[in-house]
Design a protein around this nucleic acid. Structure first.
Lengths: 331, 331
DNA sequence: GTGAAAGCGCTAACAG
DNA sequence: CTGTTAGCGCTTTCAC
């Protein structure tokens, strides 16, 4: 592998000069610069970013820890973050915590060892794991995405969960439903708690009570959605509508309902927090609260990048990205 | 940030000893080792992977350049690769080329500068870009995934495209179709050429001719699928079946067909190379050639990792991962 | 069983 | 406008 010294020798200049033409960090006579560029070309030289990082203490890399990259919600969020990072000359390293505290722990430590310049993280569960709680004591800027960790005052970019869940529930009530089953994700996660709050608010406002048997937890996974639906169906007095609070669980709901050949929306109305990519192609098309993961990613990255300048000076920000209710055929 | 020197001082040993307890690279008296571990704990020390990499010339990181991480096919492939990497103590850096030669170029260079230990790459188009063509001259092992580049003898892990396309086409023929429109991706891409070959083979075997107006290109994008479908429909003698050769283009086909309220499969049969995540939930459920991206990723990573030992000694391997035809309601 | 010291490839004073 | 050189934090001979 050719080094900066090889280039310097080939061009007949010092390594300092080569470094400065690479980085444009000080004026170089144009013919000297040209010789250097020629030498780099000839030797097929590619600066060693590892050495650069060691020296400058900057990796120009951002780490992101998300729940599952195969979930289109996070895949899209990551694309938004990536696009914003690239524009600013940073690259993004993506890790899947898979909703597992162990993996989260491992990846956050990994990203720390690799000296990321900043972090984007959607904490597992309620964010009480030690590695997440220690984040503020470490001197790397970070911003929470999609969810935030309990008890940590830090930047966060989140969907407007309460409003979205409220709208979804109210829509169902307006359609005449009184018994609305809600399938939540992981207890303690801020998304879960906030969506539950929106649901309660709508019910209470309508003078309806919140029945415990109609509140289920599906772990934000397909299987969880399926299981919760089956539990609902086996109730002596089953709900007439199901509100699934993430895309994956909605898939579980739809599969179960299709399998049991239950008519939608006549026998069961279905609404999802977070649309499915092809939601409009289902029969009937899916009614959903549409989030904007791409924007969440972009905004979060933008916020993070500003932190590199104002070293912890500006106040912590919590940004809520609006959601919109898309009424289609399933309700 | 605390360094290995701080730990050495705190523990009252040399940096060499600290290094060796971190890496287990030589015997250390158990009480000394204990003191060192204590010191690391107290100082909240995290080894600097950047410095380690510079010194050892190994980053323990693999770079992957894929077309689009929001495409479930690649998202799943990446998960397979990642799982295999993690098991072996490597981490995976994912980049989206977005089918753009410029981005591909930029990312491959980026990964080179960051001194990845190895690369996984699905080349854009026919893989004729200079950065891809230079890959072999560079001394980093790499393996092609999903597609391969023209004229480069290198490891590759690919779906069995010819067989899959043959099966799909034959299935349509068996169902009585004579005019079958095929929507290919990007001209020159090996996936495109191979799937076309399978299609031709089945038609020829059945004594049918390959009509040029029934062969379209959709760039592996939703919009391309939509456009191609519309072109087919406006033909004086439109096809009775459409064979879409990737998941995204299939979405475009389905959207167009649904919009035009064309009956599937009566008025138009639809088959897709690469299943949709929720293909079974459509009305009618989608018939598809199911690939196994997770396995492609795992196998490719496994192959790459073996290359770290046998430095280019073993012969180049091309591994074909089987596909299976899943007949559902759309044909 | 342990330590001293020479670099890995680069950047950035400092000096001219 | 250009060169010399001291590290960045770590691993790894070589020596004891």
């Amino acid at each position: 592998m050719t080094t900066i010294r090889d280039v310097a020798r080939e061009a007949g200049v010092s390594v300092a000069t080569v470094s400065h033409v690479i980085n444009g960090t000080r004026p170089v006579a144009s013919d000297t610069a040209e010789r250097v560029r020629q030498a780099m070309e000839v030797l097929d030289y590619h600066p060693n970013a590892v050495a650069q990082s060691l020296r400058t203490r900057k990796t120009h890399a951002i780490g992101a820890v998300v729940s599952d990259i195969t979930n289109p919600f996070f895949a899209t969020l990551v694309r938004g973050a990536e696009d914003a990072a690239i524009e600013a000359g940073y690259s993004l390293i993506v890790c899947n915590s898979d909703e597992s505290p162990e993996k989260e722990d491992r990846y956050v430590r990994l990203l720390r060892r690799r000296r990321m310049d900043g972090l984007l993280i959607s904490p597992v569960g309620d964010g009480s794991s030690s590695v997440v709680q220690e984040l503020p004591h470490w001197d790397t800027p970070f911003v929470f995405i999609d969810r935030r960790a309990e008890g940590i005052a830090a930047d966060a970019v989140l969907s407007d969960n309460v409003a979205g869940a409220y709208q979804a529930t109210k829509h169902l009530i307006d359609r005449g439903h009184h018994r609305i089953g809600i399938i939540l994700g992981i207890k303690g996660a801020t998304t879960t708690e906030e969506r539950l709050a929106g649901y309660r608010k709508a019910l209470t406002e309508a003078g309806l009570s919140v029945s415990k048997e109609l509140v289920a937890y599906g772990g934000y996974r397909i299987e969880g959605g399926r299981k919760a639906t089956e539990d609902f169906l086996s109730l002596s007095d089953p709900p007439t509508a199901i509100f699934s609070t993430n895309n994956l669980m909605t898939v579980g709901v739809l599969k179960t309902i299709a399998q049991r050949k239950i008519a939608v929306p006549q026998a069961m109305a279905i609404i999802s927090f977070d649309d499915l990519d092809l939601g409009e192609l289902f029969q009937p098309p899916l009614t959903a609260v549409t989030q904007n993961p791409y924007e969440i990613g972009r905004i979060a990255m933008g916020l993070l990048l500003t932190r590199f300048e104002d070293k912890g000076k500006r106040a912590v920000e919590e940004i809520r990205v609006p959601v919109v209710l898309t009424v289609r055929g399933s309700t």
